[in-house]
């Protein structure tokens, strides 16, 4: 799988998106902390949450750091930026251009 595949695969799951949102709100969370976040929405074992974290880490969306004896998980926004540059900009730009074009045509005075 390419890096991009790993990112889209990681994002294609509701629990993993929930975990990313939680890390966006507050980065640097322990596994237990993330377990509590997930528990509010779905029934999942600690092992299940750890497995999701592994997928997020493989996509480089989450970076693990040791702080003392604790392992903390941080959101890495950079791959999202790269996906944005590669995919979103390209298409949204086209929309803007065509809408501007439409605006120009429709606003042209009728003579």
């Amino acid at each position: 799988m390419t890096d991009e595949d790993l990112i889209f695969k990681a994002l294609a799951d509701r629990t993993r998106r929930l975990m990313l949102d939680a890390l966006h709100e507050k980065s640097g969370r322990s596994l237990s902390d993330l377990e509590r976040v997930v528990a509010g929405h779905a029934e999942m074992s600690r092992f299940g949450v750890a497995k999701h974290l592994k997928v997020l880490a493989a996509a480089d969306l989450v970076i693990m750091r040791k702080k003392g004896r604790e392992k903390l998980h941080y959101l890495n926004p950079v791959p999202i930026r790269l996906i944005h540059d590669r995919w979103i900009d390209k298409y949204s730009e086209a929309h803007v251009v065509s809408l501007t074009h439409l605006k120009n045509i429709s606003e042209k005075p009728h003579d």
């Binding site: 966006h24 709100e25 507050k26 980065s27 970076i63 941080y74 890495n76 950079v78």
Partner: peptide, 13 residues
């Protein structure tokens, strides 16, 4: 509110 007090950014080059 989003807590941004520690930010980690990683990239492969």
């Amino acid at each position: 509110m989003t807590d941004l007090s520690t930010q980690v950014h990683g990239i492969y080059i």
